[in-house]
Simulated assay, not measured.
Amino acid sequence: MQTYEIAVIHGDGIGPEVCQSATDVIEAALGNGKVLEFTEYPAGAAHFLKTGDGAPKATMDACRKADAILHGAAGLPGVVHPDGTEAGVDIGLGLRVQLDLYANVRPIRLREGIVSPLRGREVGQIDYTIIREDSEGMYASRGAGAVVREEMAVDMLIVTRKGIERVVRAAFELARKTGGAPRDGKKRVTCCDKANVLRSLAFFRRVFDEVGEQYPDVERDYSYVDAMTVHLVERPDFYNVIVAENLFGDIISDLGAVTVGGMGMSPTAELGDHHGFFQAAHGSAPTIAGQGIANPYGTILAGAMMLHWLAERHDDPTLAEAGRRIEEASARALAGGVKTRDIGGKAMTRDVTAAVIGELGSSLKVA
């Protein structure tokens, strides 16, 4: 039996709580066999306060060697570098660069038991994925921008043909694997940009079209980012896969998350050709840390994404089956009313963990 090394970075605030929940669920889904080896490594804002380094080299090196990385949450209020940028996120941003994690994959799916703030939307009507280019765009300027005489500041939006091609290809490949958009069943990739104003994003759209021509079975669609903020509210069922530049993808993915229960319900995978980093989309929520009320569903579902990714890379059906069972067990727990406060319930973090593990047991008996 093959064993996979998983680097676990608990991070800050509620990070350790949701990370522990996810690893408990994953181990329960895999049964008695020691398929995954979880090893914890330090990073984040609290570690920055202790050592002056939020992304230790030893942790970065361990992540490079690991088969996958599972992360809790990062950041604490007021913990910043001298230039004012947040110190806690150094580990995630650093790994994107060092491990070339160019595709940020965020599924936006309304699940049974969650009431969407979009009036009248039901399960099955919001089910799309946002793929955000994760290594270039506006965020490529982090650490490289300039403040001149305290009178002017500048950052650059940078995109390359290689960067656009590979993330757009990932979007079309994903669309091929889906059942299409909820509204009409069409496999569709939407390019979200601001091509009418910025040359860099007009270039993004041109490359999108060049790649899209190689996928005649997948429909191409286009939306300016300002219009997209309207469309994701008014007609979310139209969308199947959306691809966007880094900053724009960051913004619309948070908007999408709130339509399906909030950041606590949003698993995320940051993927490259050889490495994968998995976490929920939420922050560290320090005001509720240690109270046992954090929502672990997002991190649990990120763990399921990790298992599916590992299964595909290593052709390991055991991992794929475990990922599927975690998703189904989580869905049954939610449908049964096991919900934390942020999604309208009273369950504690431990209650969610126990419920999902319990559902894993019942699914095993059914199988």
Rank of each mutant, 00 (worst) to 15 (best):
Q2V: 05
A7C: 14
I14H: 05
I14S: 05
E17P: 04
C19S: 15
S21L: 04
D24E: 10
D24G: 13
E27N: 12
N32L: 09
E37T: 11
Y41Q: 04
A43H: 07
G44A: 08
H47G: 02
L49M: 14
D53H: 05
K57N: 07
T59M: 07
A66H: 11
A66T: 08
D67Q: 09
V79L: 10
T85W: 12
D90A: 15
I91W: 00
L99P: 01
N104D: 03
L110P: 12
R111F: 10
R119K: 15
V123N: 09
V123F: 06
V123L: 06
V123I: 02
E136L: 13
V147R: 14
M152R: 14
V159L: 15
K162P: 01
V167W: 04
V168C: 08
V168M: 10
A170I: 00
R176A: 12
K177F: 00
R188N: 06
A202D: 12
A202Q: 12
F203C: 01
F204I: 03
R205P: 00
E210N: 05
V211I: 15
G212R: 13
P216S: 07
E219M: 13
E234H: 15
I242S: 05
V243T: 12
G249M: 06
G249H: 06
D250G: 02
I251N: 04
I252Q: 09
S253R: 05
G256V: 01
T259C: 11
G264K: 04
A269K: 03
F277P: 01
S284E: 04
I293F: 02
A294H: 03
T299A: 10
I300D: 00
M306V: 02
M306S: 01
P317M: 05
T318E: 11
A320Q: 07
A329Q: 10
S330C: 12
S330Q: 05
A335M: 04
V338R: 14
D342L: 09
G344D: 00
K346R: 13
M348S: 05
V352M: 08
T353K: 15
A355D: 02
A355C: 08
